[in-house]
Amino acid sequence: TTLHFDLDGKKLQYTGVSEEIARLVEELKRRGVDLKEIVRILEELLK
């Protein structure tokens, strides 16, 4: 799965993300978590 974000005018793309992580990101968005925080979490998970 590939995730795309537009953060402060920067286009971020994460490829090869598992379905689980993609679902987690969608859930965080639904809960109103700040996009910067979501990206920070995502980068930690993908290390």
Rank of each mutant, 00 (worst) to 15 (best):
residue 1 T to I: 14
residue 1 T to E: 11
residue 1 T to K: 13
residue 1 T to Y: 15
residue 2 T to G: 04
residue 2 T to K: 05
residue 2 T to E: 07
residue 2 T to Y: 04
residue 2 T to S: 07
residue 3 L to I: 12
residue 3 L to C: 03
residue 4 H to P: 02
residue 4 H to A: 08
residue 4 H to C: 06
residue 5 F to D: 01
residue 5 F to N: 01
residue 5 F to P: 00
residue 5 F to K: 00
residue 5 F to W: 02
residue 6 D to R: 02
residue 6 D to F: 10
residue 6 D to W: 13
residue 7 L to G: 01
residue 8 D to K: 01
residue 8 D to Y: 03
residue 8 D to R: 00
residue 8 D to G: 06
residue 9 G to R: 01
residue 10 K to L: 13
residue 11 K to F: 09
residue 11 K to D: 09
residue 11 K to E: 10
residue 12 L to K: 04
residue 12 L to Y: 14
residue 12 L to G: 01
residue 12 L to W: 08
residue 13 Q to Y: 11
residue 13 Q to F: 13
residue 14 Y to E: 00
residue 14 Y to H: 00
residue 14 Y to K: 00
residue 15 T to P: 07
residue 15 T to Q: 11
residue 15 T to S: 11
residue 15 T to M: 07
residue 17 V to R: 00
residue 18 S to A: 06
residue 18 S to K: 07
residue 19 E to G: 09
residue 19 E to T: 10
residue 19 E to Y: 14
residue 19 E to P: 11
residue 20 E to I: 05
residue 20 E to W: 11
residue 21 I to S: 05
residue 22 A to C: 08
residue 23 R to N: 13
residue 23 R to E: 12
residue 24 L to T: 15
residue 24 L to F: 11
residue 25 V to H: 02
residue 26 E to L: 15
residue 26 E to C: 14
residue 27 E to P: 02
residue 27 E to G: 10
residue 27 E to I: 10
residue 27 E to Q: 12
residue 28 L to T: 02
residue 28 L to R: 03
residue 28 L to C: 02
residue 28 L to V: 03
residue 29 K to G: 09
residue 30 R to P: 01
residue 31 R to M: 08
residue 31 R to T: 08
residue 31 R to D: 07
residue 31 R to C: 05
residue 31 R to W: 06
residue 32 G to W: 05
residue 32 G to V: 05
residue 33 V to C: 05
residue 33 V to S: 05
residue 34 D to G: 07
residue 35 L to C: 04
residue 36 K to P: 08
residue 36 K to R: 15
residue 37 E to A: 10
residue 37 E to K: 08
residue 38 I to W: 01
residue 40 R to K: 12
residue 41 I to A: 08
residue 41 I to L: 10
residue 41 I to E: 07
residue 42 L to F: 04
residue 43 E to V: 06
residue 43 E to P: 02
residue 43 E to T: 06
residue 43 E to L: 06
residue 44 E to M: 14
residue 44 E to K: 09
residue 44 E to T: 12
residue 44 E to Y: 15
residue 44 E to N: 09
residue 44 E to R: 11
residue 44 E to I: 13
residue 45 L to S: 10
residue 45 L to G: 05
residue 45 L to I: 08
residue 46 L to M: 07
residue 46 L to Y: 05
residue 47 K to I: 10
